[in-house]
C-alpha cells in the first residue's frame, strides 16, 4: 500500500511537534530572546509538563491502534502502533531525565527517595519501567527471538503503562480537575473495546 509510508511520515511529524516546539522555545530563550514567554514564565515546569503530556498522548495513540483496526477493519493503522509506542517511550524518558536534571541534580538516590516517598512519582516510574522492555523488544528480530505469543504477552505491559501514566497525572493536579479524568476515561474506553468478542474479524477470515 503506497499510502503507508506517507501515513508514517505524517505520524512522525505529529509526534515530533511538541519536541520541536520545546527546542525552539529553549533556543529562543537562551540564544536571542531572554524575555521570551513562549515556554511561560516558568520554562522548567512547562517543559517538564509538556514532555509528560506528550508521552501520555503518544501512549494513548499507540493503544488506540488495535481498537481502530477493529472498528474500521483497516489494517493499515497497525503500521503506526510501534511508532507511537516508541515516541511514548522517548517522551517518557525525556520527562524522567529532565526531572532528574532540573529537580534532582542527577542524583539517583534522590530519585529513589522521591519514588519511595511520593505515590505520584511511583506511578510515573511504574509507567516508565513498564514501557522500557517494550521499547527494547520493538524490533522484528525481538519478535522472532521471543516468539509471537510470548512477545504479545509481554507487550500487554502497555496497558499497565497506560493506567500508571493516567494515575500519575491524576495524582499530580491540585483540586478536582477534569483533564486527567478525561485521559483515564479515554484509556478505559480503549481497554474495554478489547474485551468485545471479535465477531467481525472471525467472519471475514472464515
Amino acid at each position: 500500500m503506497p499510502q503507508i509510508p506517507l501515513l508514517r511520515a505524517a505520524a512522525h511529524g505529529v509526534m515530533a511537534m511538541p519536541l520541536v516546539l520545546l527546542l525552539w522555545g529553549w533556543a529562543e530563550l537562551l540564544a536571542w530572546n531572554p524575555g521570551s514567554r513562549m515556554l511561560t514564565a516558568e520554562p522548567v515546569a512547562y517543559t517538564h509538563n509538556a514532555l509528560g503530556l506528550a508521552a501520555l498522548r503518544a501512549l494513548l495513540a499507540s493503544l488506540s491502534c488495535t481498537p481502530l483496526r477493529r472498528l474500521t477493519g483497516w489494517g493499515g493503522v497497525m503500521a503506526l502502533r510501534r511508532l507511537f509506542g516508541l515516541w511514548a517511550f522517548a517522551y517518557g524518558a525525556m520527562h524522567l531525565l529532565f526531572f532528574l536534571f532540573a529537580e534532582l541534580d542527577w542524583s539517583l538516590p534522590a530519585l529513589a527517595a522521591e519514588t519511595a516517598k511520593r505515590p505520584f512519582i511511583l506511578a510515573g516510574m511504574v509507567a516508565f519501567l513498564a514501557m522500557a522492555p517494550l521499547a527494547a523488544t520493538s524490533t522484528a528480530a525481538a519478535i522472532r527471538w521471543l516468539g509471537a505469543r510470548r512477545w504479545q504477552a509481554l507487550h500487554r505491559l502497555a496497558y499497565v503503562a497506560g493506567v500508571a501514566a493516567c494515575v500519575h497525572f491524576l495524582l499530580r493536579v491540585k483540586g478536582f480537575q477534569w483533564e486527567p479524568w478525561l485521559y483515564l476515561g479515554g484509556l478505559a474506553l480503549l481497554l474495554l473495546v478489547r474485551l468485545v468478542p471479535r465477531g467481525r474479524r472471525a467472519l471475514r477470515t472464515s
Binding site: 524575555g35 514567554r37 511561560t40 514564565a41 516558568e42 483540586g175 480537575q177 483533564e179
Partner: peptide, 17 residues
C-alpha cells in the same frame, strides 16, 4: 509581564495564562 501574566486564579481557568 510575569506578575500579571502568570497567575493562579482558578475562577478564570486552571492554566497559569
Amino acid at each position: 509581564a510575569d506578575v500579571a501574566g502568570y497567575n493562579n486564579f482558578y475562577e478564570f481557568g486552571l492554566d497559569k495564562g
